[in-house]
Design a protein around this nucleic acid. Structure first.
Lengths: 234, 234
DNA sequence: ATACTTGTGTGTCCGTCGGACACTGGGTGT
DNA sequence: ACACCCAGTGTCCGACGGACACACAAGTAT
């Protein structure tokens, strides 16, 4: 069944189960095992041997079903992101729709903390992932934004999700987690007065890596543009 | 000289050259060589052997000067980001200051396209990198934003720089580069109507991965908040 | 001048990684 | 009964980060 071009394992029509029904190993089982490993021990622990071991199989057996590790990761992502949401039923226009979209995406990414790391860099992109983008771009229809702007807006928003999620896992930024750095920051408080003072004058709000803050700023910024467009255009 | 704790190679006082003056290998030469490799062939090409080879030295010789590859990368980053800017002279308040900061940072990151990849995930953070953050947070003083908000704002902005730069190098998002994906998108245009239509109705603006767009949206969003604060507080 | 110490660079080895390639053994169609 | 086919195996390779013992030069103390 997977005899044709391997490049379209993601995009090809997989709806023909053909004949062979009793296969121990399938792409989906492999992806599931890999996701288990990634969820439990992080993306770095996902090696062909690890995944194969979890399936009681040799690592080379996996290559009968995926062409490379990159393809395995691509399949993992496609499986993990799930079906893109239908936001058509969300009332209130583009803003509530985008909020809903972002919340759903964030939920998914929280279930699979390795997704930020896995979805950076050059890689294969699957239809479900594109579907999520489609869903968000569609939510911006009728805002007066042109096509490029709608795509840029979605890129901005999804980038923010990636950044905050990535920072939640690792200490990407100086002020997150990392007591070690907190200590250093305190030791060098004379060198970084603004940071030191900012660290002391927080409003006591619970840290979420700037998720809510950034989301609201982005949406406010989009709002400004949308209003400007509707003002000039109609 | 490097006899003390290796952990503070970044933060420790390196201002004491002690005695040994004629060392073939130094941390700075190693970092420079590694940066050359990264600039020329990308972060993936930076291995201990590659860097050592460029210095006509065994890879194990490097370990006399850096404790691990992670530390080497940290030193690379510290060296590449350069001294943080002083935005005190920029007139016009927080917004022009942030624009200037973002432009400078973007320039730096464009000179070293591997920086986005190198600065994600758990890692050591050096004083210059913190200095850049300090610089941006300081630019937001007097805006009425509390400390956490100032930091969140800087995180939002720097995240946007990272995302756009990262997308410039690799095809992080469906609509960037990657003619392969463009083709696929066109083949499946019925499945992704909003994306397809958006791709056709762009304003013909030159693609910059949404850099200008996102920057303006973020600043507009911050502006809304700043005005709200000054309205209530003063 | 000689012996000791200190520190820089070398050589060898290990486990893990992704992947190529030849093989085998059980199930299927004829 | 037969040959074929193909999913899974075993072995090998080069590159990776890194541990460890060693060689060897320079500086110091005697």
């Amino acid at each position: 069944m997977a005899s044709e071009d391997r490049a379209d394992l993601l995009w090809g029509s997989r709806d023909k189960p053909a004949r062979p029904a009793r296969l121990a190993l399938t792409v989906d089982r492999i992806a599931a095992a890999a996701i288990e490993v990634a969820d439990a021990e992080g993306m770095a622990a996902v090696s062909m041997q690890q995944v194969a071991g979890r399936l009681d199989v040799t690592k080379m057996a996996l290559y009968r079903h995926v062409a490379s590790k990159a393809e395995l990761v691509a399949v993992m992502i496609e499986s993990a992101v799930g079906e893109p949401p239908d936001l058509g039923a969300v009332p209130g226009g583009w803003r509530p729709r985008l909020v809903r979209w972002a919340d759903l995406m964030r939920e998914t990414w929280q279930r699979h903390p390795w997704l930020p790391a896995a979805t950076t860099g050059e890689r294969l992109t699957g239809p479900r992932e594109v579907g999520w983008t489609e869903s968000a771009v569609a939510a911006l229809e009728g805002t007066g934004l042109d096509g490029g702007e709608r795509m840029d807006a979605v890129f901005l928003l999804s980038g923010h999700i990636r950044n905050t999620q990535s920072a939640a896992t690792a200490g990407t930024q100086p002020w997150t987690a990392q007591k070690q750095l907190r200590t250093i920051l305190h030791e060098h408080r004379d060198r970084f007065p603004a940071l030191h003072q900012a660290a002391r004058s927080t409003n006591g709000a619970p840290r979420d890596n700037g998720w809510e803050f950034g989301l609201n700023r982005i949406l406010d910024g989009l709002d400004v543009l949308v209003h400007a467009r509707s003002g000039t255009a109609g």
